[in-house]
């Protein structure tokens, strides 16, 4: 029995392919949630009401310092205890989104704080409304510079999707593991899964760099 057997590589492909689809779907939807919710968190955090802003900050801190796996368990299992059944898919992607929203909100916050104070003053002097100030002036300057940091979390989320296996979502790594268990051969399938994560990370980080470059040029920052 050789260490690496190509027949197993081909045999594992359909499994990995099915799993990869789930993984990519979960990442895309989860990250869309994280991007939007993260911005909401960041804006709530700037609330003039001190109580609201402190509560938001603490919540973000809490989400960031506890494991994603445990958060997934919490949402998926606690609901049914009170008669609320949340499908695994929704619980998994939802928690993924919320978890990374906490990280993204910190990134947005840094971006917003980096916008010069003079920009706010110019908006007051021109009598722009609060919402117009945010939409037209502040966010277009705050977001492009932080795209690389957001992109890193996108990649991070992709690599965290295997956690969903814990609530029986058949993402790529679980498929690889199942294939391994059925055939008593782990090496090919798990190595392939690892290679795919690595490939995705490298490609995605190149795309992120390009997007950041394009955005900064588009908005004439730097």
């Amino acid at each position: 029995m050789s260490i690496w057997d190509w027949t197993y590589v081909w045999a594992a492909f359909p499994y990995l392919y099915r799993g990869a689809l789930v993984t990519i779907q979960a990442t895309l939807i989860g990250f869309a949630i994280a991007l939007v919710l993260g911005l909401v968190f960041a804006l709530v955090r700037r609330s003039p009401n001190r109580l609201v802003s402190v509560a938001m900050a603490e919540t973000v801190e809490f989400i960031r310092s506890t494991p994603l796996l445990l958060q997934v368990f919490f949402v998926y299992f606690v609901g049914p205890q009170f008669g609320i059944v949340i499908p695994a898919w929704i619980a998994g992607i939802g928690v993924l989104g919320i978890h990374y929203a906490a990280y993204c909100s910190e990134v947005y916050r840094a971006g917003i704080e980096a916008v010069e104070g003079g920009q706010w003053e110019a908006c007051i002097a021109l009598n722009l409304s609060r919402s117009r100030t945010w939409r037209a002036i502040i966010l277009p300057q705050a977001i492009p510079p932080v795209v690389p940091a957001l992109g890193n979390y996108f990649i991070g989320m992709f690599k965290d999707t295997p956690i969903l296996a814990a609530i029986a979502i058949l993402e790529m790594l679980q498929q690889a593991k199942n294939f391994g268990a059925e055939n008593y051969r782990y090496i090919e399938a798990i190595t392939m899964a690892g290679a795919f994560y690595l490939l995705f990370s490298l490609v995605a980080s190149a795309i992120v760099q390009a997007t950041a470059f394009w955005l900064n040029r588009r908005y004439h920052l730097q």
Partner: peptide, 23 residues
Amino acid sequence: IEFFRGTSLLVQLYWWFFVLPIF
């Protein structure tokens, strides 16, 4: 750096746990 950051932690754990015994 690229290897350990690029592949998922869980993949790495499985590798250590399921694959290394083969060697």
